[in-house]
Write a protein that binds this DNA or RNA. Structure first.
Lengths: 135, 135
DNA sequence: CGTACTCCTTACGTTAACGTCAACTTTTGC
DNA sequence: GCAAAAGTTGACGTTAACGTAAGGAGTACG
């Protein structure tokens, strides 16, 4: 045990985030996570946990893993070239626009949905009064 | 031509919504759309267009086609049984909760992302001043 | 020492959501 | 009246995101 503190085994990760081992290995293969190795075994760091949280969040928004991978790069900008950073910045702005328009759409959809649900509630309420032979 | 008004051919639909014919036939097979037939050919009604709009919107929120199909049923409640309506109402409320929590998460993510983007902007700005050999 | 976990890699299977291609009919322009 | 265009139905191919099963290695404990 090099540093059993701060790192987690694959099982612990699975329980903490409600995913399968296969999923974590898959994410590593796709370069979304970078667990360190102790011999054969994977040890997931705090950084991996932060990334996984973002991955799972991204998935709920309908992003693909590849898109998420690109987003994650933004969170871990190392010592890149200036031009690279510029490009990254541009991509980031596009993503932000995507997310904001998605939020706006979602709000619209929620409003619609609420209206529909209210109406449905009324239908149920009114039907409940009838002798079951209307129309 | 039974009523060339109000209805659209598959091509017109494709151009209007930027999808392929295959997609529309697929959605029909999955009972998401119900174009009428003039001989062999499909004719898409106003109802189909409304549904397709909702389908495409739903997809951007990460809903599966099957989930979307269930949602669409809510918009076209016919003469169902009272108990059916009750069940539908319950499902609808769950969906609404899903959408609202998804929106909240999205807002949080947007906030995070903006912070990150601001920081990135500063990195770029400060780097621009340096002689390219810092750290 | 054995067997019981937990982990590993390799590799084939699965589902959703279409793409693509072949073979055929129907409609349309000239 | 006939070729091109547009539409149709199979049927197989493809990609993403894992599931699942086989076989092996290291560690733990009774």
């Amino acid at each position: 045990m090099i540093d059993s503190d701060e790192t987690m085994t694959i099982r612990q990760m699975c329980e903490a985030f409600d995913v399968t081992p296969r999923t974590l290995r898959f994410y590593e293969a796709k370069e979304l996570l970078f667990p360190i190795r102790e011999g054969q075994k994977r040890l997931f760091t705090k950084r991996d946990r932060a990334r996984l949280k973002l991955i799972l969040r991204g998935k709920r928004f309908g992003f693909s893993l590849e898109e998420i991978r690109q987003l994650l790069e933004l969170y871990y900008v190392g010592d890149q070239q200036q031009t690279q950073l510029q490009a990254t910045y541009g991509i980031a702005q596009e993503r932000l626009n995507d997310m904001e328009s998605q939020r706006d759409e979602l709000n619209e959809a929620i409003t619609d949905f609420k209206t529909q649900l209210d109406w449905l509630g009324k239908v149920i309420a009114s039907n409940a009064d009838l002798p079951a032979a209307a129309e």
